[in-house]
Design a protein around this nucleic acid. Structure first.
Lengths: 244, 244
DNA sequence: TTATTATTGTAACATAATGATACAATAATA
DNA sequence: TATTATTGTATCATTATGTTACAATAATAA
């Protein structure tokens, strides 16, 4: 979010944005054999939340989601999936947003648009951890990676949203072959297997995993080989874009 | 929708409902070995559309979807799945709604809330065709079943919504074991197979299909047998509710 | 009453997919 | 040059799925 947008969003009437609809993004990364999630912390409140945003009056929903994630990661062409719409009345809780706005010196009127009920479209994003530059907007304190297993308490129902995103990622992993989006362009089969094992939270058998992955015909073996370990060098692979 | 609700919705300001968000429901039924979809036709316009509705200010999104489908089918406890959110700006087209309102003697002002942009949460419903009593609301001309392959032209992007719902149904059929919701309580394996074949639009081998279904352990064989055909009577089965 | 007909339930085998073990190959280090 | 850790893949076992075959049988017709 640019400074202009932050001001737009902070204005009293929310003009220029659709009412009652928000986007929450669960941005997944993979590093040190662990799944990471991008979280923001609001200034002077100790409140943590998912990156989110609103939809401009003439903007496609999916474009708005891409914009939200681009703004926090500095990336473009991000893999994004809608996974669920969170629309329970019970999730409506203006308290944290009041706290956040008050902490920033804007005591909001009760009828401020940000304190109204929102239905939130949940997206998960899969990004190359090494390419991301997490960047907070002016009203945020920070925007950082957190271990999926060591997340702080999040506002509203954001913790549930993360877990539901993980469920969706797990069920889509084999069906849609999207895991590659979490890795650098070139990777070894070992790295790919450790990614799968981390996401699915279970050990996989190496020969079966390799046989399966290679038989899918979506991997391209690269001439170069891995260097670094005191052992046989694995081949590097690249995801065939034209395969899907 | 009751008469009161229809009036509520027709009022100029849309008070009591969330802005910019709607629900569209693809209600699937199965009859004569064909998939059916419930469509409504608006009075004096020849315009066809999916059943839809809006979310009350204090209503859960999923509850609202259930209400919308209940109102058209007369059923309760309906199997419902969110499958996609349709949020492209391009889908916003006030023309059909203007036509509908004008045909009913309410020439709407340009800023009427129903003529504003809506993002629509798509749900599909699976119902027992034999239990449904399609019932139009006062402002509708009809509410009827149509063959999936013989649908009239629908307003806005509703045709695409139906096709995307069918895609979602196909991918979920095996994963979530939801086909039973389209059949009466008691059914034969032959009927179940014809349902699968219709949804997936391909022939299945009978021995493999039966072996697979029975091995899932979700079917309960009933003592009674089918009567009617000049051939060996098939067993009747019932879906084990406790199985999921 | 008995043969015919259509369809069912399931056995039997063939093929394919997956699970599991084993081992030679080899890049860096000692 | 030997050691070490890890890779690539062959091999076999097990399970799942595809395919053919056939006896069983409820209604109808002879």
């Amino acid at each position: 979010m640019t400074t202009t947008e932050a001001n737009e969003v902070s204005s009293t009437n929310g003009q220029g944005f659709l009412k009652n609809i928000a986007i929450d993004a669960v941005v997944f990364g993979f590093h040190d054999n662990q799944l990471k999630v991008l979280l923001i912390e609001y200034k002077r409140t100790g409140l943590f939340a998912l990156p989110g945003g609103f939809i401009r009056e003439s903007e496609d929903l999916n474009v708005a989601a891409m914009r939200v994630v681009s703004e926090r990661t500095g990336l473009e062409d991000i893999y994004l999936d809608q996974f669920y719409v969170f629309g329970d009345y019970g999730r409506f809780d203006p308290t944290p947003l009041k706290t956040i706005m008050t902490a920033n010196g804007n005591k909001p009127p009760e009828e401020h648009w940000l304190l109204k009920r929102f239905i939130s479209v949940g997206y998960y994003a899969l990004v190359d951890f090494t390419k991301v530059s997490p960047s907070p907007a002016p009203i945020f304190d920070s925007c950082e990676w957190y271990d999926l297993n060591k997340m702080p308490v999040l506002i509203q129902d954001h913790t549930q949203i993360v877990h539901k995103a993980l469920d969706a990622l797990r069920t889509n992993l084999d069906r849609k072959l999207i895991g590659f989006n979490l890795l650098p362009e070139e990777f070894t089969l070992g790295e790919l297997q450790r990614l799968y094992e981390t996401i699915l939270d279970k050990k996989l058998l190496r020969p079966a995993f390799q046989r399966k992955m290679l038989s899918l015909g979506i991997l391209e073996r690269i001439a170069k080989k891995w260097t670094g370990g005191a052992h046989k060098a694995p081949y590097l692979y690249r995801f065939k874009v034209q395969a899907l």
